[in-house]
Design a protein around this nucleic acid. Structure first.
Ligand code: SF4
Ligand code: SF4
Lengths: 158, 158
DNA sequence: CCGAATCTGGATAAATATCATCCAGGATGC
DNA sequence: GCATCCTGGATGATATTTATCCAGATTCGG
């Protein structure tokens, strides 16, 4: 799984803590986590395209959550970064069997192997969809949240 | 996910169909699915090390299932090929926070993010562990099994 | 005992995906 | 106007996956 998922999760949790009063520049988030600014920006762009973040260009611009943390699931986030493809990609090696008969109808329906892997993938997605950003930010210790607020200079007004 | 998982699944289902009367050479399995023989062999070796297949060297040697298909789960197979690491690897970017305080005990316990991703991974593994090779070979259409038996020249005695 | 078949495992190379940087363009606020 | 900041494409570096090859070791059949 791409490293950007971890980055995106941390950034989103942080944005949830900060509230969406004013956007946070990508460079500032990168600085916070000591991540490569340009590449983190690419990840945040992906989250923007997925409708998880909204971006405002220009001075005093940046990123903020596009909707309430309660309505952003981990599945949304993972899908935005990793893409919608399943982990198990079937390459249809079955059809390459030496005596494969193209006329056979058997190859049209998904086989048991693909179905089994798909079922497991669904269980994974379901679990991710059951957890929201709000859960994450609530589960973190208060001290972590306070530290983030302080670091971003929002300690007093929130 | 590595392509070898699909190969391994197909090979194991086929081996389950063929029974373990006599082993099947890797080259023959590769021929069956039109896969690169040398690389497929590497995958089968991994299954061997994981205790899913047993290999017999020498003439008339090859691979066979190490135990009954009912006792080989998809999780066994996937883990053997993909390795035991979880998809989500935490790189502890939290500790890189600008004001990270090494003395803080907060960094010792796993954070909410890692816990959430781990929970989803467990759901995936659980689903994989619930399905066995026997389920797969039973779910496949009879014609597929018959074709495999015929192709391997085992149509008469099984 | 000999030779063909077959696995083992390490070295190596090719192909691909991931990670990272850079830059020109456009938008926004001061 | 100018500094800030996002956008998106091009490009390069690095890591992983895929694939090949070869020198042993083992077994079988004759
Ligand atoms: S038989 Fe199933 S797993 Fe194999 S190639 Fe076809 S769909 Fe994929
Ligand atoms: S806070 Fe959680 S997800 Fe982030 S680096 Fe630490 S353990 Fe990993």
């Amino acid at each position: 799984m791409s490293e950007g998922v971890e980055w995106g999760l941390h950034c989103c949790v942080t944005l949830a803590w900060l509230g969406d009063e004013e956007p946070v520049p990508a460079a500032r988030l990168a600085e916070r986590f000591q991540l490569p600014p340009a590449y983190l920006n690419k990840c945040l762009q992906a989250l923007g395209r997925a409708g998880i973040l909204t971006s405002t260009p220009g001075a005093r611009g940046g990123f903020r959550l596009a909707r309430a943390p309660e309505r952003i699931t981990l599945l949304d986030l993972v899908t935005a970064i990793e893409g919608p493809e399943e982990a198990f990609r079937c390459t249809e090696i079955r059809q390459r069997c030496a005596e494969a008969n193209p006329a056979s109808r058997e190859f049209l329906r998904p086989c048991a192997i693909a179905a089994a892997m798909h079922k497991a993938e669904l269980a994974w997605r379901k679990e991710l969809a059951a957890q929201t950003l709000a859960d994450l930010s609530a589960a973190a210790p208060r001290s972590a949240r306070d530290a983030a607020l302080r670091w971003f200079g929002r300690g007093e007004n929130d």
